[in-house]
Amino acid sequence: MQNLLAGIILVLIAAIASLQASELSIGTLRHIGPGMVPSALSAFVALIGVCLIVTWMRGHRSGTGRWPTRGPLFILGAAVVFGLIIRPLGLAVAGPLLVVVAAFASHETRWGEILAFAVGMTVFCLVLFKYLLTLPIPVAPWLIGY
């Protein structure tokens, strides 16, 4: 299954890329246009994808292992939440929220500990990034205006 899936994904990526590149002019060898390199690369990627599918058909069927969803869902979810609220609500809200959402990803989480940790870490980051390094990251625009 591993090689089959890998091959299909490569072919898919190549198809999407060459579709996007199809509107660009290929040019000539003497004067390469913007479309040539992306199109050529997509063709090579697709070729490798096909090769991988062929190796799967010829019997190299190693498994893909487990695909847990909990980790990816909450870790990437935490990052997405952070990205969505950092501008309107600032680090004072986005920071602790990221830690708490991410904590759902691990079954070892102890909630009392993580809440205290979320607050402490956010304060630490505010001091470090905002006040020591003076990065222009919003703190709490809804409360203090920046």
Binding site: A79, I86, G95, L98, V99, I114, M121, C125
Partner: peptide
């Protein structure tokens, strides 16, 4: 959690 926060 710390790594993720620093990354973000």
């Amino acid at each position: 959690a710390t790594i993720l926060l620093f990354c973000a």
